[in-house]
Simulated assay, not measured.
Amino acid sequence: MAQLASLIRHPVKAIGYEPLDRVALTEGRALPFDRHWAVAHTAAKFEGQPTEWQRKMNFLRGVTGAELMAIAARTEDATGKVTFTHPKAAELTVDPMAEQQALIDWLTPLWPEDQPQPDRVVHVPGQAMTDWPDPFVSILGTGSLDALSDAAGTPMSPHRFRGNLWIEGWAPLEEFDLIGRTLRIGQAELEIRERITRCKATHANPETGQRDVDTMKILRDTWGHQDFGVYAIVTRSGEIAPGDEVTVL
């Protein structure tokens, strides 16, 4: 039996992973508060606050700044503030939009000096600042992660891949065979749409922020491509939680 092993969101694009106990999915929407904010850099191709989705090269990303991959996040339900931690920085608790300068100041020492610098926090109501404008939820298999870890010769953290839903009980890469199928998880249903092609952000260790595994090469050498995980669209609203059974419809 396959089941939901873990549930993760990333309140600020590329900055902080946050495990969840449960979440309510909404038809046609991304995971709630996943990539709710993003940090634009000084070379962003738009000014001020955008009114629509913007391309990923406008924002701070782990592919450019490996240290970002070691940031963890924790949202305070009572206040909506987010606490950020990193092994090389003091803990910071802020409202990412209202106190954005504090977040910018905290991020700057973790960002490469030779790159366009952190400039401002942005948010587009109703639009997750994901790599694609579609309201995708990413789904990955722990069996695939185990197989990749075996090929790498070292345990690979799921946080390298910034996924939302991790499914336990599938064979390695079984998720690729489910494209076009619908999953029922808890009360919700999601239709799997396409594979996720990976980038060098996955080379960084989420515990240290240092690049220590050539994930791209291992993917190519092991399976002949650079894909890992799949994108899905929520087709039926409902609450999900780790431990929920995953059924292929």
Rank of each mutant, 00 (worst) to 15 (best):
H86R: 05
P32Q: 10
Y17F: 15
Q117M: 13
L92W: 08
Q117A: 12
W106E: 11
L7H: 09
V12M: 04
T64I: 15
H10F: 14
I8W: 13
E91W: 03
P109L: 12
H36F: 08
D119M: 13
H86N: 08
E113L: 15
I8N: 05
M57G: 00
A98S: 09
I104V: 14
R35Q: 01
T108F: 10
I8F: 00
L20P: 08
G16T: 05
K56I: 14
N58A: 05
I71K: 01
P96Y: 03
D95V: 06
Y17S: 14
P87V: 04
A102T: 14
Q101K: 12
P118R: 10
A73M: 05
I15E: 00
K13G: 01
G28C: 04
Q100A: 07
G62Q: 02
V63Y: 00
I15R: 01
T26I: 10
V94M: 11
G48I: 09
V94G: 09
K13C: 01
E91N: 00
Q54H: 03
E91I: 04
G62F: 02
G62A: 01
T42Y: 04
G16P: 04
Q115C: 11
Q100D: 08
F59I: 05
L92C: 05
A98H: 06
P116T: 13
G16D: 03
E47R: 14
K88D: 13
T93F: 08
L7G: 04
R29V: 02
T42F: 04
L107S: 06
G16S: 06
D34N: 15
M69C: 08
A24D: 10
T79L: 05
P11E: 07
V121I: 15
L25Q: 06
D114E: 15
A66T: 07
E67T: 09
D95R: 05
L68D: 02
T75L: 13
I104L: 15
D119L: 15
L60M: 13
G80A: 12
A72H: 09
F84E: 07
A38T: 07
A70F: 03
Q100K: 06
G80R: 12
E27M: 05
W53Y: 01
A90E: 14
H36Q: 13
L60H: 01
P112K: 06
H86S: 06
L25D: 07
T51W: 01
P19E: 03
P112G: 07
K81T: 14
Y17E: 11
E27I: 08
P19M: 02
W53S: 08
A30G: 06
A78T: 14
A44H: 08
W106D: 10
W106S: 12
P112E: 05
D21Q: 15
G28M: 12
F46N: 09
L92Y: 10
V94E: 04
T108E: 10
T83A: 06
T75E: 12
K56N: 03
H10C: 08
M69L: 13
A70K: 04
D105T: 15
P19A: 01
N58R: 04
G28D: 08
A24T: 15
L31G: 00
V63G: 04
V121E: 02
F59C: 04
R74N: 01
P50M: 11
R61N: 11
D114W: 10
T75V: 06
I104M: 11
K56H: 09
T64N: 05
P11I: 12
L7S: 07
F33S: 12
D95M: 07
